[in-house]
Every structure is written in structure tokens, then in C-alpha cells.
């Protein structure tokens, strides 16, 4: 088992390395280099050469890549082109806002979608299941900002119960924080809820229709024991996968939600970086999001291996 987990860990590291090559490589395809971008139109050859030497751009790409990656690993994320400040400082103050949003949304949407998925699976083909099917189909099809705007219109503009901007202050009490964060967290939860619920439903149905559950039911086992001892252990592994798969929706969801509600978070920084073409900032943000995404996927895979003995042996 440990060999399998070790292999998966190495695979994860390799993916991470590949991601860093893609992120660094993307900036290399650009005609011209960062020095030209910094100096803009009115540049002299001399100024260009001096700046290149200063930034170390005269060295071969592979050396610069190693340097950049080494810096990343030591927490040196480079210097922003637009603000001239260290990227680490800019990110440090914002990362908590994004993290809090994502964690709260996950804490709400994961248990809720598992419960709804289980409910729909128990009543498969019934009225509850059909209603939920139509609702999820619609939820999946609409853009995240549509959900965000409708919630904002109802709860912030018309009713005035909740705040439309998610700016929190350190001195806020619980209710002030709740008013500020309720709408962005709800929007983000809706964005991942539908997918997660559907996947849970199908993996539970998959297990309930298998022969060994039918056998257990025929033996006359009480329902509680049937679900908890027989079905659940086998459902764990697909459920971990479901949660990991939805991290991808979470990443794109967070970007939109932070913009809709003006959350001063990491993805706002990334989007601003993209519109200003602040390459070091983009690289650092992309690397952070990419790493989190890849590491969480890795974690889900390892948890599945631990939960499902069949995955411990290579086919």
C-alpha cells in the first residue's frame, strides 16, 4: 500500500513540476521579454540592456527557470512589475480572504450536497429526485455571476438584509461578518452544489444496485446496519473523488464571486495582474492556485486508496 501511495505522491510532484514548466514556459513564448514590457514604447537599446542585466534576463531560460522555481520554494515570489512591491507582501494580506471564502463554502456545500445526493438516491425516480434533477440542470447551466446578482438583488437591494460588498473589518462582530460574507459564500456554494449532489447521487445508486447490497438486504439486515456497515465504506472512495473533482469548479467559482462581491482576495489580485500583464504576479498566483488544486487532488486520491483496499493493488 505504501508503495502505491508513494507512487501517487511522486506523480503529484511531477504534475506540480509540469505545471510550473507550463506557467514559466507560457511567458517565454511571448515576443520580446519582461524588460521590454517594463520600459514600454519609449525605450533605448542601452536602457533595455541595462535592465536585462539587472533582472538577469541575459541568462539562458533554463537557468532563469531554476532560479525562479528555487525562489518560489523559498517563499520569494518575485517583484510585481506594476507596483514594484514584493509579490509575497501583496499576496500575504489577501490570501486569508480567499481561503475563508472557499473554506466556508466547502463547509456548507460538501455536507449539504452529500445529504441531498443521498436523499435523491434513496428516492430515485420519484418526485423529489425529478424536481432536484430539473433544478440542478438549471443551476449547472447558468453562470455564477447570474446566481450572485440575483441573490444580491433580492437580499441586498430589495430586502436590505445582507451586505453586497464582502469587505470585513477586524473589529467586526459575528453578525457583521455574517452580513458581509453570507452572499458570496452562498453563491459559491450554489456553484458547486449541483455538480457535487449529482455525483453523490449516482455513486450511491451505483452501490445500492450492486449484488452484495441486495444480498445483505435479503439476509434481513436492519437498514441502519446495511447503510452504515455495508454501503458507506464502499461509497467513501467515490465521495472523496467527487469532492476533489469539484475543487476545479470552486477555483473558477471563487474568481467570479470575488469580482461580483468585491472581495479583496487573491483571485482579484490575479485578475488585476492579468489585465495589467504583471507577469511575476500572474506566475505567483497561478502557481499558488495550481499547487493547492494539485495537492488537494492528491489528498483525495490518497484518501480513496486508504478507504478502498481494492485500489491498493495495481491492476
Amino acid at each position: 500500500m505504501f508503495r502505491i501511495i508513494l507512487r501517487r505522491l511522486l506523480q503529484g510532484l511531477l504534475t506540480l513540476l509540469l505545471a510550473s514548466i507550463i506557467i514559466f514556459g507560457a511567458t517565454e513564448i511571448l515576443p520580446g521579454d519582461v524588460a521590454e514590457a517594463v520600459l514600454g514604447q519609449n525605450r533605448t537599446e542601452e536602457a533595455l540592456a541595462t535592465l536585462r542585466e539587472q533582472m538577469g534576463l541575459d541568462r539562458p531560460a533554463i537557468v532563469r527557470y531554476a532560479d525562479w522555481l528555487g525562489g518560489m520554494l523559498q517563499g520569494d515570489l518575485g517583484t510585481s512589475l506594476a507596483t514594484d512591491r514584493p509579490v509575497a507582501d501583496m499576496i500575504g494580506s489577501r490570501i486569508w480572504n480567499t481561503l475563508r471564502l472557499a473554506l466556508l463554502a466547502a463547509a456548507i456545500s460538501v455536507p449539504l450536497s452529500l445529504a441531498l445526493g443521498l436523499w435523491a438516491a434513496m428516492r430515485a425516480g420519484g418526485a423529489v429526485d425529478k424536481t432536484m434533477a430539473m433544478t440542478t440542470l438549471a443551476l449547472i447551466a447558468v453562470p455564477e455571476f447570474f446566481i450572485g446578482l440575483v441573490l444580491m438583488k433580492i437580499f441586498a437591494v430589495e430586502l436590505g438584509w445582507l451586505s453586497a460588498t464582502a469587505n470585513t473589518r477586524p473589529y467586526y462582530d459575528f453578525w457583521q461578518n455574517f452580513r458581509a460574507l453570507a452572499l458570496p459564500v452562498a453563491t459559491l456554494s450554489f456553484a458547486v452544489l449541483a455538480h457535487m449532489m449529482r455525483m453523490t447521487r449516482s455513486s450511491v445508486i451505483n452501490i445500492f444496485t450492486s449484488a452484495y447490497i441486495e444480498m445483505a438486504a435479503l439476509k434481513g439486515l436492519p437498514k441502519r446496519r446495511l447503510v452504515l456497515r455495508h454501503a458507506l465504506p464502499n461509497a467513501l472512495s467515490p465521495i472523496f473523488t467527487v469532492i476533489a473533482l469539484n475543487l476545479s469548479y470552486m477555483v473558477s467559482g471563487v474568481i467570479i464571486v470575488e469580482t461580483v462581491f468585491g472581495v479583496p482576495g487573491l483571485t482579484r489580485l490575479l485578475v488585476d495582474g492579468v489585465s495589467l500583464r504583471d507577469i511575476p504576479l500572474i506566475q505567483a498566483c497561478a502557481m499558488i492556485f495550481g499547487s493547492v488544486y494539485i495537492l488537494l487532488n492528491l489528498l483525495a486520491d490518497i484518501l480513496s486508496i486508504l478507504a478502498n483496499p481494492r485500489l491498493r493493488y495495481p491492476k
Binding site: T15, V271, G290
Partner: peptide
Amino acid sequence: AFPSTLLALVI
């Protein structure tokens, strides 16, 4: 292996 939105933003 990389979130698609992030990939698009980098490009």
C-alpha cells in the same frame, strides 16, 4: 491537471 480558468487567465 490544471484548472481551466487558471490556464486561460495565464495565457
